Simulated assay, not measured.
Amino acid sequence: MTKLLQEKKSSVNLLTLFTIFTFSLHFLAAIFLLFEGLRIYGLIHKKPLTFVQLVDGKRVSQIDTLEREPEVIRQFVAKTMAAMFNWSGTLPPASVEDATNPKPDPGIPINTLQNLTKKVSTSSWVGSFALSEDFRQGFLAQIAEMTPPEIFSKNNNQALTGQLVIQRVYPPEKIAPGRWRVGMVANIVQIRRSDNKKLLIPFNKDFFVRSVDSFGHPLSNSLTPLQKAVYSVRAQNLEIYEVSDFCLTNGYDSSPKSQSQRCGDIPNSGSFTR
């Protein structure tokens, strides 16, 4: 009888130890999975490193993905605004045939700030994808208000054309990591086809630009020419997130200043179309 009790007591102790050991293994496995999950989450949200090799063969392990060359930023602002105010009345050429025989631009309807529906040129609509998403609709709405309906007229006696004539684009001024301010002095020139009469509208603005990431379409071969143009705009890895009036009274230096400091007592209309 004593022997049976000792065997029973011994078996209970082994079962308890096995349970504790198994529970400990499961607990350690859960901790390990949690740790690996946090590492994977960090890798997903981490910007990829950019590796380059210099001409002399030296290898640079990483470059700052927020930085952009000043000339790239200047060209980005100039090309974007030129596209926004390209009111030729024809569609952007997608082939050699379109370049020799351009197609009429039907325009793209946009809801204005007054809840009216007006048209912008296709070039303006494509160029607007260089703007941040929260700023794009408001900018397009004011472009629609500025765009004369005669742009889309097939009657040569009424038709107008318009373009942005840039006089100067100032060097980018860095205001934060990956953010710049770029001043532009330009004029919007509208020409009536019937008598070549011109209308000159000053367009002096400050553009606030920031670096962004871009991703190509996985099915690039199936894209339409218009979709390819939009993806080409976003592939520049830059976007304009704000536009304000630019004054020439106090000049333009390299030190960060607010709009009120640069413009002095000149009132700000709060509109980029001033």
Rank of each mutant, 00 (worst) to 15 (best):
Ile151Thr: 11
Ile188Tyr: 03
Leu14Ile: 12
Phe135Pro: 00
Phe215Glu: 06
Phe207Gln: 11
Ala30Val: 14
Asp265Gln: 06
Gln62Ser: 10
Ile240Asn: 07
Glu150Ala: 11
Val189Trp: 08
Asn115Met: 08
Ser95Phe: 00
Ser10His: 15
Asp56Ser: 06
Leu33Ile: 10
Tyr170Glu: 05
Thr224Asn: 03
Gly264Ser: 01
Pro70Tyr: 04
Ser214Val: 02
Ile63Pro: 08
Val243Trp: 08
Pro102Thr: 14
Val52Thr: 03
Val189Gly: 10
Asn157Met: 10
Val169Lys: 01
Ser61Ile: 14
Val52Ala: 02
Phe152Tyr: 08
Lys174Arg: 10
Asn157Trp: 05
Pro102His: 13
Thr22Ser: 13
Lys79Cys: 07
Val12Cys: 12
Ser153Gln: 04
Ala83Ile: 03
Ile20Phe: 15
Pro172Val: 00
Ile20Ser: 15
Val185His: 00
Gln114Ile: 07
Ile191Ser: 01
Thr65Gly: 02
Val55Gly: 00
Met146Phe: 15
Val72Ala: 11
Arg168Thr: 09
Gly264Thr: 00
Ala186Lys: 00
Gln137Ala: 06
Glu97Cys: 03
Met81Lys: 11
Thr19Ile: 15
Ser222Glu: 02
Glu36Pro: 00
Val165Gly: 14
Leu91Trp: 00
Val169Phe: 04
Leu43Asn: 11
Lys118Glu: 09
Ser254Tyr: 04
Glu145Ala: 12
Tyr231Ile: 06
Leu33Met: 15
Val189Glu: 14
Lys103Val: 03
Tyr252Thr: 01
Thr100Trp: 12
Glu133Leu: 10
Asp105Pro: 02
Ala30Leu: 13
Ser211Gly: 11
Gln114Asp: 12
Glu242Gln: 15
Arg68Ala: 11
Ser254Thr: 06
Glu173Met: 09
Leu199Met: 10
Thr22Val: 09
Gly107Gln: 09
Lys174Val: 03
Arg136Ala: 01
Leu116Tyr: 08
Glu133Phe: 09
Gly183Thr: 02
Tyr252His: 02
Pro102Phe: 12
Asp105Ile: 02
Met146Pro: 04
Glu67Ile: 11
Gly162Lys: 05
Ile151Gln: 02
Ala83Trp: 12
Val182His: 07
Thr249Cys: 13
Ser211Asn: 12
Lys205Phe: 04
Trp125His: 11
Asp56Trp: 09
Ala144Asp: 08
Asn111Trp: 13
Phe135Arg: 03
Phe208Lys: 01
Glu150Thr: 05
Arg274Pro: 08
Arg234Met: 07
Asn187Gln: 03
Ser244Lys: 14
Arg168Ser: 06
Val243His: 12
Arg192Pro: 09
Gly89Phe: 01
Leu248Glu: 12
Cys263Ala: 08
Ser153Tyr: 05
Leu199Ile: 10
Leu38Met: 14
Thr122Val: 06
His217Ile: 06
Met146Lys: 12
Thr117Pro: 01
Leu200Phe: 07
Gly264Asn: 00
Ser153Pro: 05
Leu49Thr: 14
Val77Ala: 03
Val182Cys: 04
Asp245His: 15
Gln62Tyr: 05
Phe51Pro: 03
Asp253Tyr: 00
Gln75Gly: 07
Phe35Cys: 01
Phe272Pro: 07
Ile44Pro: 04
Gln259Val: 10
Ile240Cys: 07
Ile191Phe: 01
Pro70Asp: 03
Val126Leu: 05
Leu131Gln: 04
Cys263Thr: 05
Phe129Ala: 05
Ile166Gly: 12
Ser128Trp: 02
Thr90Glu: 05
Gly89Thr: 00
Gly270Lys: 11
